[in-house]
Design a binder for these strands. Structure first.
Lengths: 138, 138
DNA sequence: ATGTTCACTTGCGTTTTGCAAGCGACTTGT
DNA sequence: ACAAGTCGCTTGCAAAACGCAAGTGAACAT
């Protein structure tokens, strides 16, 4: 039983975002979909940070309940579910970008190439993500 | 005993951000400092979302350990501590802004005036925040 | 028919959270 | 000087969330 309509703590827009995304896994799942093109439960499990299966299942359920991702069966393999970002999910790209840029400025991290790409032309980068995510995959 | 140097789950810059900020309270504290000018424990307790005292104390400790905020005694009242954003903390303004704009686009929220202000001229808004936070208060 | 893959669920011990109460240092009022 | 706040916490405890390992059922592969 899910509870998408639990009352919010406040009407502040930042609080709304934090209640939907403020945990240690949700944004990483979105990153995997947005930047790495991952789409299945198995693929998300394989991320560097290695979520537990029950937590991953819960996060996917929550993100779907919030309308950030949506699910469909793989037509070529009935066992697989394919998770995709909705427009609302794709629209998180600027948030992801700013979080990456902030960490890039203030922390020692890997993947400097990605950070440089974002810095060089942020709008172009965002446009590429939108284009890549919005059209159905071949 | 605090543990600022616990090993990260991965070197990904997004993961670094999520490990520092990915919970239900940290960004709200930063919002209160950045947008509402709050500076003391008591003031943070008075936010709409009403954090528990132990959680608030923990979050302030963590944010300080990460260098996002810093603490000093109030010279006019020895009981009070004044919490302020460091440059690293002020630099979270674009992240806050994108989170607010995203929620504003996709959720029913209050404070539409703030959202409109951010939409109208994002750079101007960010410049104002930087200016307001960087100079010591009178 | 048998074994494997996939997307989970279940059980269980540990950690984090939320709530209420308390505490010590400092300040205010008399 | 002294009692009564105020401030920034800490402590105790119950409930929820998390991490890990194992298991389950449906769908494929051979």
């Amino acid at each position: 039983m899910r509870k998408a309509n639990t009352k919010r703590r406040s009407g502040c827009p930042l609080n709304a975002s934090v209640e939907m995304l403020g945990d240690r896994w949700s944004l990483l799942v979105i990153r995997d979909m947005m930047l790495l093109g991952r789409r299945t439960f198995k693929e998300f499990l394989g991320s560097y940070e290695r979520p537990a299966t029950n937590v991953l299942a819960d996060r996917l359920r929550r993100l779907a309940a919030y309308g950030i991702i949506r699910t469909e069966r793989d037509p070529t393999d009935g066992r697989k579910l394919i998770y995709q970002l909705t427009p609302k999910g794709i629209d998180l790209a600027p948030v992801l970008t700013e979080l990456v840029l902030w960490a890039g400025r203030h922390e020692k991290t890997e993947n400097r190439a990605l950070i440089r790409l974002m810095q060089k032309d942020k709008e172009k980068f965002l446009a590429q993500i939108r284009q890549r995510c919005e059209q159905p995959r071949k």
